[in-house]
């Protein structure tokens, strides 16, 4: 029983961060049908920007997020201008060109980080990094708790933005049916730029949060990109609530494996990559697709 509570608490905390990571990918995918491999590089950059704000200016990493978010939004709009705009959106699915192009952007970002920050492993050590509190009898690190809070705030902000503003509604409209949205007068270029900015901002925020939990190098981010991708596959690529569910499923599986099985920790990433692989193969439409398949089968009987 205590194990169960521990898995539940830890999974919920991890899911918040995972959802922040995955939303950035999902919003860009939804609007532009691009799988943004540069997401990993942007998370890495977010970690370093948070680190620099902390190291040079003494800014608390979680206060730093308030700067990182808008900064990365602008960076995303600029990136969209430089490369994203030239990617013609192919009708059915994401194109190979866009995948390889964003892969190139990732490599360039990685190299810039080597130049600016060198290849040394960095980490952020604040007064509360090693502190922990008890929740339902489970010891939880203070940074994980703060990360959960920060993710919750950013996700609520995103949700309000998507539901109440014109831009947000337009983003959802383009995601659901691009042609119909364009016919109703939505400016595709502007919406793409906004979505790219939002996606980049969420990558930066996720990176900043990750920097308070893990040590990082310019190579940082690859395993988190795979996790984020696993989540949007589980969540069904375009559905907003799906992403939250996918994040929770991945977090529960990871924590459950760590607690109930003797899989060594060095193998844990391999487990989530295997999961990604199986998820891609088994549910190409994600969990929502699986549910609707079951629902259809139920309706037939």
């Amino acid at each position: 029983m205590p194990e169960l509570v521990s898995v539940a608490v830890n999974s919920l905390l991890a899911a918040g961060l995972y959802a922040t990571m995955a939303y950035g990918l999902a919003v860009i995918y939804g609007v532009m049908r691009i799988i943004n491999l540069a997401h990993a590089g942007l998370m890495m950059l977010g970690a370093y920007v948070t680190f620099t704000l902390f190291d040079r200016f003494g800014l608390d990493p979680f206060v730093g997020l308030a700067l990182t978010g808008p900064l990365f939004f602008l960076l995303g709009v600029a990136l969209h201008r430089l490369v994203g705009r030239r990617l013609a959106r192919s009708g059915a699915g994401p194109s190979m060109e866009s995948l390889l192009l964003t892969f190139g952007v990732w490599l360039v970002l990685q190299n810039l980080a080597y130049y600016v920050w060198s290849g040394d492993t960095q980490s952020i050590l604040t007064g509360y990094t090693l502190k922990s509190v008890a929740i339902l009898g489970v010891r939880v690190g203070v940074p994980s708790l703060l990360v959960f809070g920060a993710s919750a705030v950013s996700l609520v902000f995103l949700n309000v933005l998507l539901r109440t503003t014109y831009l947000g509604k337009a983003i959802r409209a383009v995601t659901q049916n691009r042609d119909a949205a364009l016919l109703s007068g939505v400016d595709a270029d502007r919406i793409s730029a906004t979505a790219f900015g939002l996606g980049t901002a969420f990558a930066g925020l996720a990176g900043g949060m990750l920097s308070t939990l893990y040590a990082f190098t310019p190579d940082f981010g690859r395993s988190f990109l795979l996790k984020a991708f696993c989540i949007i596959v589980l969540g069904g690529m375009e559905s907003v609530t799906g992403v939250a569910v996918g994040a929770l499923v991945l977090a529960i599986l990871e924590n459950g494996l760590a607690v109930y099985t003797s899989v060594p920790t060095s193998f844990q990433d391999a487990v989530s990559f295997t999961l990604l692989f199986l998820a891609l193969v088994a549910f190409p439409q994600g969990l929502p697709g699986l549910f609707s398949r079951f629902a259809r089968r139920g309706a037939l009987h």
Binding site: I35, F273, T274, F277
Partner: peptide, 10 residues
């Protein structure tokens, strides 16, 4: 392509 990144890492 994404699945193959996962295989390579694993």
């Amino acid at each position: 392509t994404i699945a193959t990144i996962g295989v390579g890492e694993a």
